[in-house]
Amino acid sequence: MLNKSKYAFIMGFLIFTLFPVLWMLKISLTPDRLLFSEGITAWPSEITFQHYYSVLVEGSIPDYFLNSFIVSFSTAAMVTVIACLAGYGLSRFSFKGRTAIMTILLITQMFPIVMIIAPIYNVLTYINLVDHIAGLVLVYTAFNLPFACFLMQSFFDGSPVELEEAAMIDGYTRFQALEKVTLPLCLPGIGATLGFVFTAAWSELLFALMFINRQSQMTFPAGIMNFVTKFSVDWGQMAAAMILALIPVCIFFSYIQKFIVQGLTAGALKG
């Protein structure tokens, strides 16, 4: 009995989760002439891959994809390296100013981002990186660092100091001990951080809309929104582009999700 209701709930969750995605898939496969003539149907009477072809070959969507990939990957890599260092610093040392740093990191998570888009624009103008994906990478790095630092700190808190100290007694420098002993233990944490930041950068819309005007530098979210405003009637192509955008994050995420749960469990055990 209990088992039956459990499966009923799981089915409910599955339907709620998949329904909008499958509906998008349906629209992306429906030929334009059937979209309106058939009305709302569960599945079109015939399907086409024309929309996918148009999106992948004719438009600038592949460029957006490439830009998004470069931006997300560079951001994730930079944030993870920098946050590893900071998380280590926060976890292993107690020093004057530590509380102040933690407070600053927390405050950065509290205010509405829309408030500082214009001032950041000025900073980017100053370093000549407006309208360039490198500028986006810098901004994304800054905004993802606080959370990543907290995450890495909790992983370092969870890994034993004793091993590191033993290695240092054996003649390693602190940095060597971190690299050879502690980092390998924190690999799930590093994976989780990479994944978090990659998805965050892949999804970000507002900065990308505000800082990028050139087609050649547009990331996927900004490009798609551009697409929406320009060709608001082309449902099929948009749905196809949306389905394509889901693929990389879904693959990446389903791969890392078990590390995330593992990592958080490790963190929770300690704290």
Binding site: I82, A83, L85, A86, Y88, G89, L90, R92, F93, F95, R98, I101, I104, L105, T108, F111, M115, I116, A118, P119, I120, N122, V123, L138, V139, T141, A142, F143, L145, P146, C149, R174
Partner: peptide, 28 residues
Amino acid sequence: ISIREPWLYLAPTLLFIFLLVLVPLITG
């Protein structure tokens, strides 16, 4: 352990947050 050591680990983070979050926040 020198007093400066933790700050070395934190320097890159603080630099990023100072230039791209705190300065714009205050300007804003």
